[in-house]
Design a protein around this nucleic acid. Structure first.
Length: 238
DNA sequence: GCGACAG
DNA sequence: ATCTTGTCGC
C-alpha cells in the first residue's frame, strides 16, 4: 500500500527499498502477446541544480518509427538522484505524462534499466508495474551485473548476468559505438526487449524512441514546445 | 576496507 | 541529468 507516486518526495532510501521489494512481486516477464503497433519513448530533462522536471512521452508508429504524438508535463522532483533509486525521482512525472495521453502505447521504452537492477526494479520495471504497461529499459551505462564486451558490429550483443541469471543485454546499436544496455521492464520477456531494441536501432547510438523522447523533452525544457498533448504531422491517430 | 555507482 | 571547445577518426 506504500506505492503512491505523490508520496515519493519524502521517502527515505530504506523505505524506497521496501517499495521496490513489494513491486518486484508484481513483475510479469511473460512474452508480449501481440506485435506492437505503437511504441513510446519516455525521458526527462532538468536544468542543473533545479527541482523542476520536464517529462515527456513520444509516441512512434512501430512500423516506420515516425513520431506521431507527444505528451509533455512539467513538475517538481525532490527525491535526490541515488543510483538504484532513479524511479523515485522520475516516475511520478512520467506517470502524469502517460495519463495525459489519450492513446495507450503498446510498449514504452524508458531511459534507464528494467530488471538489470540489484532488486530487478529499475525505472522501466517500476514504471511498468505501477502502470500495468509493457515496458523496457535502454540505458547508456551499466548499473548492475557482469557482461562481456559484445562484438563490434551493429546488432552484436552479449548477456548481462547476475550470477547464473541473464538480466539483460549489452547491445551494439551501431557500428563502433559503446553498447547500450537493454532489459525488460514489465509484461515482456528478455527476448522481446532485445528484439524490440534491435528493431528500433537506426543510424544513431540510441534507439529511436529514446532518442526522440530526449529530443522532445529538451525542446520542452528550453521553451520551444509547450506542455500538453500534441499530435505530430498530419495523420490523426483514430 | 575497497570499488561501483542508470539519470 | 546539465554545463562546454576543441579534437580525433572515418
Amino acid at each position: 500500500m506504500s506505492t503512491t507516486p505523490a508520496a515519493y518526495d519524502t521517502l527515505t532510501v530504506p523505505e524506497a527499498t521496501l517499495i521496490q521489494k513489494e513491486l518486484r512481486a508484481q513483475l510479469d516477464l511473460s512474452p508480449l502477446s501481440k506485435p506492437p503497433q505503437y511504441i513510446a519513448g519516455a525521458d526527462i530533462s532538468l536544468n542543473r541544480f533545479s527541482e523542476v522536471i520536464y517529462a515527456g512521452l513520444v509516441l512512434l508508429r512501430y512500423s516506420d518509427l515516425q513520431p506521431v504524438a507527444c505528451s509533455l508535463v512539467q513538475s517538481i522532483t525532490r527525491f535526490p538522484y541515488v543510483p538504484g533509486y532513479l524511479a523515485f525521482r522520475e516516475v511520478p512525472a512520467l506517470v502524469q505524462a502517460l495519463e495525459q495521453m489519450p492513446v495507450r502505447p503498446d510498449v514504452i521504452m524508458l531511459d534507464g534499466h528494467g530488471i538489470a537492477h540489484p532488486r530487478r526494479m529499475g525505472i522501466a520495471a517500476h514504471f511498468g508495474t505501477l502502470t500495468q504497461m509493457a515496458t523496457m529499459g535502454c540505458a547508456k551505462k551499466k548499473l548492475f551485473g557482469k557482461y562481456e564486451e559484445p562484438g563490434p558490429a551493429k546488432g552484436d550483443y552479449s548477456p548481462i548476468m547476475d550470477k547464473e541469471e541473464t538480466i539483460g543485454y549489452a547491445l551494439r546499436s551501431k557500428n563502433k559505438v559503446l553498447p547500450v544496455f537493454i532489459s525488460p521492464g514489465n509484461r515482456m520477456s528478455l527476448d522481446d526487449s532485445l528484439r524490440i531494441a534491435l528493431h528500433c536501432c537506426g543510424n544513431y547510438r540510441l534507439p529511436e524512441p529514446t532518442r526522440k523522447a530526449h529530443e522532445f523533452v529538451n525542446l520542452f525544457r528550453t521553451g520551444q514546445l509547450q506542455s500538453g498533448y500534441h499530435e505530430i504531422g498530419s495523420g490523426s491517430l483514430f
